[in-house]
Simulated assay, not measured.
Amino acid sequence: MILVIVLVLLVVGSVVFSFVSPWWFTPLASNWGTIDTTLIITFVITGIVFVAVGLFMTYAVFRFRHKEGQRAHYEPENKKLEIWLSVLTGIGIIAMLAPGLVVWDQFITVPKEAKVIEVLGRQWSWAFRFPGEDGKLGTVATKYISDENPFGINPNDPTGQDDLLVDESELHLPVGKPYKLLLRSTDVLHDFYVPQFRAKMDLVPGLVTYFWFTPTRTGEFEILCAELCGVAHSEMRGSVFIDEEADFQEWLQDYSTFAEEMAAHEAKKSELTEITENTPQ
């Protein structure tokens, strides 16, 4: 009887805790409410199965508990029960998978009006690249990565000359507009994750992955790396600010283009060379 009481308390306590728990999703700040819906459907289905199995175990322990002189009946198979279990299990799996497939189709179908930016992950910080006036991001290659060119932008590609470079872990985006984030890593696996946006994706060295979302409210949100990426993984954080359009444009104007950055580096090199040559030996 003690085991029966423990099983009942476990089932009831788990259900009650699910409803009164202080831990729940962070408030949504993007268009991906369907991801929350899909997760809730999964919680409901698995919760129902948990309660059903728990109560059945409780019934079985109580109903078939040991009694003096009573022997167990051995029944190796029950085709009717097996069919019912197979059908119900199949329905449950379909009910959990189908919403996810629908959401995944939406997740990989980027709106035509979505603007593109690049997210660069590296141990252990973030950086961002916006297209310039031509609306296109320049091509990149690993061989071009250097201290002066951390994004690895092709210096021979004219479309990359006006790219705006944000070489710090702070990103600003305008509210209410869809954005496609191109994700690159220069070293190991990272994962760009903002809990309030729900959408997330791995950054894989040698590949360009992506996801898209539409910010739905202004505010400051924390960027996390959701992939173990080294000893300072926990420090790989940043901030994304969702602004009104005017505030976003004002912020973006503070950053230089790739051409301007390269010109500044060349000017600095020339200055150092001149100082070195004019220094008495």
Rank of each mutant, 00 (worst) to 15 (best):
E118Y: 06
V119A: 04
G121D: 05
R122I: 11
Q123G: 09
Q123L: 07
Q123I: 05
Q123D: 13
W124V: 07
W124H: 15
S125Q: 14
S125R: 06
S125V: 11
W126F: 00
A127T: 02
A127M: 02
F128D: 04
F130S: 01
F130I: 08
P131F: 00
G132C: 03
G132P: 01
G132T: 02
E133S: 07
E133N: 13
E133D: 07
E133L: 04
D134A: 08
K136N: 14
G138R: 03
T139A: 12
V140L: 11
A141N: 05
T142D: 14
K143N: 13
Y144I: 05
Y144G: 04
I145N: 10
N149C: 00
N149K: 01
P150D: 04
P150I: 02
F151R: 01
F151I: 04
F151M: 02
N154F: 09
P155R: 11
N156L: 12
D157P: 01
T159E: 10
Q161F: 03
L164E: 04
L165E: 08
V166Y: 15
V166D: 05
V166N: 15
V166Q: 11
E168K: 15
E168S: 11
E168Q: 15
L171V: 01
L173S: 07
P174G: 08
K177T: 11
P178I: 03
P178V: 04
K180I: 10
L181W: 07
L182N: 08
R184M: 03
R184S: 08
R184Q: 05
T186A: 03
D187R: 06
D187I: 01
V188S: 06
L189C: 12
H190N: 03
H190Q: 02
H190Y: 06
D191Q: 14
Y193M: 09
Y193P: 03
P195M: 04
Q196R: 06
Q196T: 10
Q196P: 09
F197P: 01
R198A: 00
A199V: 09
K200E: 09
M201N: 15
D202S: 15
D202C: 14
L203T: 06
L203H: 13
L203N: 03
V204S: 12
G206K: 13
G206M: 02
L207R: 15
V208L: 11
Y210D: 11
Y210N: 11
Y210I: 10
W212Q: 06
F213T: 14
F213P: 02
P215K: 03
P215V: 08
R217Q: 10
G219E: 08
G219V: 03
E220Y: 08
F221P: 03
E222C: 06
E222W: 09
I223H: 05
L224I: 06
L224R: 10
A226I: 08
A226F: 13
A226C: 09
L228A: 14
G230M: 07
V231R: 15
A232E: 14
A232M: 13
H233K: 14
S234C: 10
E235G: 12
M236N: 09
R237N: 02
G238E: 02
S239A: 14
V240H: 15
V240D: 10
F241C: 07
D243N: 08
D247N: 11
D247C: 06
D247S: 12
F248H: 13
F248D: 01
Q249N: 12
W251T: 13
L252I: 13
Q253A: 14
